[in-house]
């Protein structure tokens, strides 16, 4: 039996993402990476919490932030997390087309989120002259939220390239782990965002 046949069985196993050794390694290695990402973001959160009182002029968290935009962004990202769950549901049922459709919806929602974040930054810079260099609060804010936005951008590129690359291949044991891990990354982005909207925006408004 050639490796091509092994990777394309007639009936997919129950967990196509962990059916091969490579899949298992990707799975465990990726969670190791997520543990490290947790610490990385913690250092940015710690910096923000320590420096968000070092403001300049009127540009304080309470004065700057608008909750309407943040609420819509939260809903977009949370919904995109559910749509990627749907994508993995169809992956397990070996329905490649439906998986691609749900991943596509995830990407659209993620793009919406990213667009709104860019608008938010633009708004702060042009209407409040609140930049990376304005104050320690500014530096900490843009580093933390911008780093998360960078993760969103990377996740979008990742999912889109997986979708395009495997469009004609269909689902097999070679690419199932890849899709699964990209969806884990997408969920982790939402995990970080939950703490950002709580710590930065909501707690910033409470003062």
């Amino acid at each position: 039996m050639s490796s091509e046949d092994v990777l394309n069985p007639k009936h997919m196993p129950h967990d196509p993402e962990k059916a091969t050794l490579e899949g298992k390694n990707k799975f465990i290695g990726f969670w190791f990476f997520l543990g490290g990402e947790t610490v990385l973001f913690a250092s940015l959160f710690g910096t923000y919490l320590a420096l968000n009182g070092s403001t300049q002029g009127e540009n304080t968290p309470e004065h700057l932030f608008g909750l309407e935009l943040v609420f819509i962004m939260t809903m977009l990202l949370l919904t995109s997390s559910l749509t990627s769950v749907y994508a993995m549901y169809h992956m397990k049922n070996q329905d490649f087309k439906k998986m691609q459709i749900w991943l596509g919806i995830t990407v659209v929602l993620g793009l919406g989120f990213l667009g709104m974040e860019i608008y938010e930054f633009y708004h702060y810079i042009h209407h409040y002259e609140f930049t990376f260099r304005s104050s320690a609060f500014g530096s900490a804010f843009y580093t933390l939220v911008g780093f998360h936005g960078g993760h969103v951008l990377f996740g979008l590129c990742w999912i889109v390239s997986l979708m395009l690359r495997n469009q004609k291949r269909g689902l097999n044991l070679y690419n199932a782990p890849k899709f699964y891990i990209a969806s884990l990354y997408w969920h982790f982005i939402d995990v970080v965002w939950v703490f950002i909207f709580t710590v930065v925006y909501l707690m910033g408004k409470v003062g």
Binding site: I28, W31, F32, L34, G35, G36, E37, T38, V39, F41, A42, S43, F45, G46, T47, L49, A50
Partner: peptide, 20 residues
């Protein structure tokens, strides 16, 4: 997975306490 995430969360908490 749980070991890595809880390990990460513990270090994360220490990091935040240290920084603040």
């Amino acid at each position: 997975v749980a070991l890595m995430m809880y390990g990460g969360a513990a270090v994360a908490l220490l990091t935040i306490i240290t920084f603040t």
